[in-house]
């Protein structure tokens, strides 16, 4: 049995340690979190994942160049709509988010490096949130670079009227590309938050995530039913539609066609102001709030979870 004096001594030591820890906590926690953030970014850079994603993201730019060379008659806005507003948001953005967000915790677990993080004075909820923040950073940078590159591939050298630095609606192309990047960044952040949460509730996140992308975001979001209200792509499309114009000349020339309304099942004939759909501000709020809710729930799950993996002796 421990003697009374030794118990008093350890209590005293504990109190002194707590006092020192309390003094050091705030500043040192910030230093630890910043290091974790940088470490996660470095992990993203050192993996092969960013090279795969880079190649995938180069695809729309490559296709744009190919189309311009082989089919010069295709109008640039049509090319933009197909590549930047169909291909990237429907396939690449959720995929890049899935690949990075699914690894926030699972990669560290699979590589058994999570121990080095768990034995540091960092709360587990903060560990998740910082790694999520780093994931936002990586995916948003990838999205911005490659979306910008795709815009450049579509519009570079298009000096002849009616383009000349503007599209058919008279919008400045650089400004349009910035708005596009902002909308897609918002979408990729939403996807990262969602897939980050999903990765904590299922071990088969890649299978579940790809099914979700294909079925919910890829198919159901394209039907004019209520189900699309739970998809990320619906709100990002609405933000885009309310911010930018998508008028493209028809193949015969002469008339202009609203390609987005048709492709995205927005009934502008019956409801020209899209009053039955959420407004711009509401769409932003929904995307940001749902992202925040996913992040908070995931952080809460993390704070309560044991990250156990088999040690060699149990294999």
């Amino acid at each position: 049995m421990t003697s009374v004096s030794s118990q008093a001594s350890i209590d005293q030591t504990s109190r002194e340690n707590d006092a020192v820890a309390h003094r050091a906590t705030r500043g040192s926690l910030v230093a630890a979190l910043w290091t974790l953030y940088v470490l996660t970014l470095r992990q993203h850079l050192h993996g092969k994942r960013w090279m795969v994603m880079g190649l995938l993201f180069l695809l729309p730019a490559g296709l744009a160049v190919l189309m311009r060379v082989t089919s010069p008659d295709v109008p640039a806005p049509a090319l933009e709509f197909f590549l930047v507003w169909i291909f990237i948001p429907q396939a690449l953005l959720p995929l890049v988010a899935l690949l990075y967000a699914s690894g926030i915790i699972q990669d560290e677990q699979e590589e058994q490096t999570i121990t080095y993080l768990l034995v540091r004075p960092i709360p587990k909820w903060a560990l998740y949130l910082v790694k999520l923040l780093a994931t936002f950073t990586t995916t948003v940078i990838l999205t911005a670079i490659f979306t910008g590159l795709t815009f450049a591939a579509i519009y570079f050298g298009e000096n002849a009227p009616p383009y000349g630095g503007q599209n058919l609606a008279g919008e400045s192309i650089p400004l349009r590309s910035l708005k596009t990047i902002a909308i897609q960044a918002l979408a990729v952040i939403s996807y990262c938050s969602l897939f980050g949460l999903m990765s904590l509730v299922t071990k088969r996140i890649l299978v579940v995530g790809i099914l979700y992308i294909a079925v919910v975001e890829g198919v159901l979001a394209n039907f004019p039913f209520g189900i699309r209200l739970v998809t990320v792509i619906y709100y990002s499309r609405l933000v885009a539609y309310r911010t930018l114009t998508f008028m493209v000349p028809t193949p015969g020339g002469g008339t202009m066609q609203d390609v987005a309304a048709e492709a995205w099942q927005l009934d502008v004939r019956a409801d020209p102001g899209l009053l039955e759909h959420p407004q711009f501000g509401m769409c932003i709020k929904v995307l940001l709030t749902s992202s925040a809710v996913c992040a908070i729930v995931a952080a809460w799950i993390c704070s309560r979870r044991e990250f156990h993996f088999k040690t060699p002796e149990k294999d």
Binding site: T25, G27, S28, A31, L39, P121
Partner: peptide, 11 residues
């Protein structure tokens, strides 16, 4: 060094 920083030590 990274582990030291993760432990909250300053630069």
């Amino acid at each position: 060094h990274t582990c030291a920083r993760l432990s909250g030590l300053r630069r």
